[in-house]
């Protein structure tokens, strides 16, 4: 279990993480979602005691990180930035981490095997691909067989096979009763792995909810109907006990009914339809809406730069 309480990090004037309070519970995968620059990595570094919080507190199983006896046996982490000496072999990289926490050497072989790096264990890390580097990072996180696992953007740079492997790994770790905390800037990725969701934007907590709840609340499905005989269609639907809501552009939106049923109804009453389409607001859209106000660097869409008319420069000259 990871508990954050009023966790805040300020770099001079800029507030990277603002008053975060939430708990990451065991037995499930908790997704940590936010746009790039939202403060996810900073939060994770503070959990590991790498960055000092400006205010607030974070505890691992009720204890401060630097009070943990052999911390790798409590919490294993894969951080975003690669942190391996390029001249050191994968084996020695893991061995020095293991030794510092009193983890037996045979465990190094086990985790190398688990991530599929046994064949290159004695090779220097500088020859590793992004995917191999990521696997080595995961091997390091698994080293102490910890009850808590933390992954910062684990699928970045992985091929489809690697992505599938990570997802399966995280789910199986959670199924073993471990606490799994994984960050991502992709809602779609979270939807596939996480059961619980913590969303932040500009360092602030925006949502702390179960994935099922988030989906139920945010992914509304409805049917879009457009007809030249709008009044007639509204009557027909009303008689059938179906409520239709007019949307701005003259189309109707129907909640809670299948498109088939509406189509059949319209056919029976001989109403002409120009459109009949089931709609589903994607989770990605819901996430974008949620974080829209908090995204720090907007791409300036919608306000195109004024186009200089041909000859303007000549006239000015």
């Amino acid at each position: 279990m990871i508990e954050l309480e009023g966790l805040t990090k300020r770099y001079g004037e800029k507030v990277a993480v603002r008053d975060l309070t939430f708990t990451v519970r065991p037995g499930i995968v908790t997704g940590f979602l936010g746009p790039n620059g939202a403060g996810k990595s900073t939060t994770m570094r503070m959990i590991l005691g790498l960055d000092h919080p400006t205010a607030g507190d974070v505890r691992i199983d009720g204890t401060h990180y630097d009070r943990l006896q052999d911390p790798l046996t409590y919490i294993g982490a894969l951080l975003e930035a690669k942190g391996v000496h390029p001249g050191r072999s994968a084996y020695n990289h893991l061995l020095c981490l293991a030794q510092s926490n009193g983890i037996p050497e045979r465990r190094v072989h086990e985790v190398l095997d688990a991530v599929g790096l046994t064949a290159v264990a004695r090779k220097k890390a500088k020859g590793f691909s992004l995917g191999m580097g990521q696997r080595l990072g995961i091997a390091a996180a698994l080293l102490g067989d910890p009850r808590i696992m933390m992954f910062d953007e684990p699928v970045n740079g992985l091929d489809p096979e690697g992505i599938h492997w990570i997802r399966t790994l995280m789910k199986s770790l959670a199924a073993q009763g471990r606490t799994v905390f994984v960050s991502s800037h992709l809602m779609s990725e979270m939807a596939l792995t996480a059961e619980h969701l913590v969303v932040i934007g500009q360092g602030r907590l925006l949502a702390d909810t179960s994935m099922a709840d988030f989906i139920a609340r945010n992914s509304r499905s409805y049917v879009r109907v457009r007809s030249p005989q709008r009044e007639l269609l509204l009557d027909v639907l009303h008689q059938a006990g179906i409520t239709a809501v007019e949307s701005g552009d003259g189309t109707l939106e129907v909640d809670g009914w299948e498109a088939e049923r509406i189509g059949e109804l319209a056919a029976r009453e001989q109403v002409v339809l120009h459109e009949l389409s089931p709609q589903r607001a994607s989770l990605e859209e819901a996430f974008m809406r949620l974080t829209a106000e908090s995204v720090e660097y907007h791409a300036h869409t919608g306000t195109p730069a004024p186009v200089q008319a041909w000859g303007d420069g000549w006239k000015r000259g």
């Binding site: 005691g49 790498l50 951080l79 942190g83 391996v84 000496h85 510092s100």
Partner: peptide
């Protein structure tokens, strides 16, 4: 300084927080 230039320092201090 190898610890810093390679980023190993984060793994090192996560393993040995004191």
């Amino acid at each position: 300084s190898n610890e810093y230039s390679t980023g190993m320092i984060r793994a090192s201090l996560a393993a040995v927080p004191r």
